[in-house]
Write a protein that binds this DNA or RNA. Structure first.
Lengths: 165, 165
DNA sequence: GTTCAGTTGAGCAATCTGCTCAGTGTTGTC
DNA sequence: GACAACACTGAGCAGATTGCTCAACTGAAC
């Protein structure tokens, strides 16, 4: 068991509605879903308590903030120093995301930058972080599919049970 | 010029406040920022119109939806078929993000899955997509630094001018 | 000196919020 | 079948919030 039961169809529909109108008042949502205001409010509260909603920061477009350039830096790290490295990386403001991976590369570091020079500087900082052995920087030239979850939400919204049955 | 001027300090503060309380009413935001309600409303409207706020879907935690497993699949693609491949990938619901990269690997594909079997299946679908030559799947074992933008926002909130001066 | 965008404070009717309560299924259990 | 647990519903209420518009003020640019 995952500890929390996965969301049900109603939750999925609620999230879809929110995806469409993020700042929609509860009233609008309840009408849209054909549920009572009470229910929607309870569901929303449960979603938040459950931690199903991540930080609002994820919605902010770095480009609009003045960082139009984005890159992924795959890094190889001295074993057993992952924590330390992650900590060092988190101190670089332009590092927006770090994932620990299995396989050849240990870390996937996502950074944003103002321009090419800026990116060069940041990549240097990543490489200079204690514990980092080797890095490889790849520019994000184009966002082919923006982060989306709607397809999975729609699946959940239709089926009653768990996502994969 | 980027086409749109970057956000200013007020915008950054507004976004920071929203990051703290995503569903805060405009009134609360205006009090918090020491600005008039009118101004906050105007700013918010401008942010949305400008496209500075991305889809709400980004805030939804796939794990809560029932997809606790995440992986990045780097793929090599037949040249000139990027569009086609991206289109094919976008039809796989579990593909949540696709970036076109410079360098050795052409595509960075982020997928979520219910479990290891599911991931195996999805990786197979990615590889089977027309135009995909080779793939390499790496499991996201741990999120070291969750997607965040606050450090950059705070920088913008303090300095009056552009993000890097 | 004038124009212009951004901000402010005020006002208004309509709506929304947070909260509580009791009633109504729908389940699952013994 | 009886019963408890649970989610959903409809209703109510005081108070806050929204969307909108207006006129006035500020600072900067020209």
């Amino acid at each position: 068991m995952t500890g929390e039961e996965p969301l049900d169809a109603v939750d999925a529909k609620l999230l879809l509605a929110l995806a469409d109108e993020p700042r929609a008042p509860v009233m609008a949502l309840s009408q849209r879903l054909g549920l009572s205001r009470n229910t929607v409010q309870a569901r929303l509260g449960k979603l938040e308590r459950r931690g199903a909603l991540q930080s609002f920061e994820r919605r902010i477009d770095p480009a609009a903030l003045g960082y139009p350039m984005s890159a992924v830096i795959t890094t190889r790290v001295t074993q057993r120093r992952l924590e330390e490295v992650a900590d060092a990386l988190s101190r670089i403001p332009e590092v927006v995301e770090v994932d620990g991976l299995s396989g050849d590369t240990d870390l996937l570091v996502r950074v944003v930058a103002v321009d090419a020079d800026d990116l060069y500087r940041i990549a240097g900082q990543v490489l200079a972080s204690p514990g980092v052995e080797r890095t490889s920087t790849a520019l994000v030239m184009r966002r082919l599919v923006g982060h989306r979850l709607a397809p999975l939400l729609e699946r959940s919204a239709e089926r009653p049970g768990s996502p994969a049955d």
